[in-house]
Each structure stands twice: as structure tokens, then as C-alpha cells.
């Protein structure tokens, strides 16, 4: 057994040296560097239109998801909105049309969020539901209320209906008592 431990003692400094070498080799690579010197090029973020973000850029880089999670719960459960901090506001400032006039797809690296997330190997699904580009609500539609239908959208007069026209929607129709599922 003593022979074995002596063997171990002999290897300990070597191992430490190897670890130190690994640290010095990898350490600086992990820190932010100007693009081009690392193995993976750093993302180039599209410039935002606003003057400044809701928090300093460095803070946002590390904590934006905590902010988003906290405030989405405030909005969903309590109906509270913090001015300038909804996901719509983020999009309005950070997403711009491409030179060809198209909006970048949320899965494209030209999309603000995806630029960094591709680099950091983070996958998000925000934009499977949320709109990924600013949308201006037409009159009557959206948060400002009003009649969303165009002015000429009049109901069909009863006289025009042929037989069976009462099937207004193709969903199963309740026949008096009980549901009508097929």
C-alpha cells in the first residue's frame, strides 16, 4: 500500500500543474473578448432604437429573464402593467425590419434575442405565442377598444337564409338538452 501512496504523491503536483494549465488556457477564453479572437465569434447585437434600456445593459445581460419572469406573473395574475416594460415594449425597441423590409424571424440570428441565445446555446419559446415584431392595432382592434369589424359588416338578413343556414358555425350544435359532441 505504501508503494501506491508514494505513487500518488508523485502524481499530485503534476495533476495540480495540469489543472492550472487548463485554467489559464480556458479562463481568458470564457471572458468577454473582442470578436475575432475567440473560437466562436461573439454575437453582434442589432442596435436598439431607444436611448437606454430599462436597466443598464450589463445588468440586463445577466438578469433580463428574471425581470421578464417576475413581471409577466404580475401582469398575468394581477393585471398589473409596468410602463415601458412589457414584452411588446422590448420588441418595439429591439426588433427592426431587415433591409429587404421583412421582419426577422424569431429563429433567425438577425433577431435580437436569438443573436445572443444562439451564442449561449439557450432556447426560448417566447415567440411561439408572443408577436415577434411590433404590430400597430388597426382602428377598433386591440387594447383601445371599438368595433373590430369594418363598418360594412352587417348581419345577414334573416330572409336571405336558405335551408340549413342556421348552422352558423361548424361546431356541433346543441339540440335542446345536453351537449352535441360527436
Amino acid at each position: 500500500m505504501t508503494g501506491t501512496s508514494g505513487h500518488r504523491r508523485g502524481f499530485a503536483p503534476l495533476l495540480a500543474a495540469a489543472l492550472a494549465m487548463l485554467f489559464f488556457a480556458w479562463g481568458p477564453a470564457r471572458a468577454d473578448q473582442p470578436a475575432g479572437t475567440g473560437r466562436v465569434p461573439l454575437p453582434v447585437l442589432p442596435k436598439a432604437t431607444g436611448k437606454h434600456c430599462v436597466k443598464p445593459t450589463e445588468w440586463m445581460r445577466h438578469n433580463h429573464m428574471k425581470l421578464l419572469f417576475r413581471e409577466r406573473d404580475l401582469t398575468v395574475y394581477k393585471g398589473e402593467f409596468i410602463k415601458g416594460r412589457s414584452i411588446e415594449d422590448c420588441i418595439a425597441c429591439h426588433v427592426h425590419r431587415e433591409p429587404d423590409g421583412q421582419w426577422p424571424k424569431p429563429t433567425s440570428k438577425k433577431f435580437f434575442c436569438e443573436t445572443c441565445h444562439a451564442y449561449a446555446a439557450v432556447k426560448i419559446d417566447c415567440f411561439e405565442c408572443h408577436a415577434a415584431h411590433p404590430v400597430k392595432a388597426p382602428p377598433g382592434v386591440g387594447p383601445n377598444g371599438g368595433n373590430p369589424l369594418p363598418a360594412d359588416a352587417k348581419p345577414v338578413p334573416v330572409g336571405d337564409l336558405g335551408a340549413g343556414a342556421h348552422e352558423l358555425t361548424p361546431m356541433p350544435v346543441s339540440q335542446g338538452a345536453g351537449g352535441g359532441s360527436k
Binding site: 405565442c129 408577436a131 411590433p134 404590430v135 386591440g142
Partner: peptide, 8 residues
Amino acid sequence: QVPWSPRG
């Protein structure tokens, strides 16, 4: 989807 009514 419209921004005021996210669906997915």
C-alpha cells in the same frame, strides 16, 4: 399572433 392576444 397579435401582440395583445398571445396564443400558441
